[in-house]
Amino acid sequence: MASPSVLKTVLSLRIFTLLALAASVVLMGLNNFKDDDGSKTKFTDLIAYRYVIASGVIGFLYTLIQIPFAIYNVIKEKRWIRNGFLQEFDFYGDKVMAFLLASGVGVGFGVAFELKRAFDEVFNDKAKKFLDMGNISTGLLLVGFVFMALLTILSSNRHSSSAKNGFFI
Rank of each mutant, 00 (worst) to 15 (best):
S137H: 06
G134P: 01
N83A: 05
K8F: 00
L13I: 04
G38E: 04
V25G: 04
I169Q: 13
F147A: 08
G59S: 05
L86D: 05
Q66N: 12
F60W: 13
K40F: 11
I153P: 00
Y92E: 04
V57P: 01
T63Y: 11
G110H: 01
F16E: 06
K116D: 07
F85I: 03
P68W: 00
V107Y: 01
Y92I: 15
A127M: 14
A54T: 11
T41F: 14
T44M: 14
T17C: 13
T152N: 12
L140V: 04
G108Q: 01
R117Q: 11
T63C: 13
A54F: 10
E121L: 10
G56V: 00
P4Q: 11
S5V: 06
I136T: 12
L151S: 08
M97A: 15
A98R: 04
N157H: 11
L30E: 14
F16A: 15
A163I: 04
V10L: 07
F43N: 13
A102Q: 05
S39H: 14
F69I: 01
N73L: 09
F123A: 08
S12I: 09
N135D: 14
D120C: 10
L13C: 06
P68Y: 01
A118G: 12
F99Y: 14
D132K: 13
I71Q: 06
I53F: 05
G93H: 02
S137G: 15
D94T: 09
N32E: 13
G93Q: 07
L19I: 13
A2C: 07
T17Q: 13
D36L: 14
L101E: 03
L61T: 12
F147K: 05
V146Y: 08
V105H: 03
T63G: 11
T44H: 10
S162M: 07
K116R: 15
D36Q: 15
K76C: 08
R14V: 00
V146N: 06
K78D: 05
N83I: 00
F145C: 11
D37N: 15
G84L: 00
I67F: 10
S12L: 15
I58M: 08
T152Q: 12
L86V: 09
S160A: 10
L27K: 10
L11P: 10
L154K: 04
A112G: 03
R79V: 03
G166P: 03
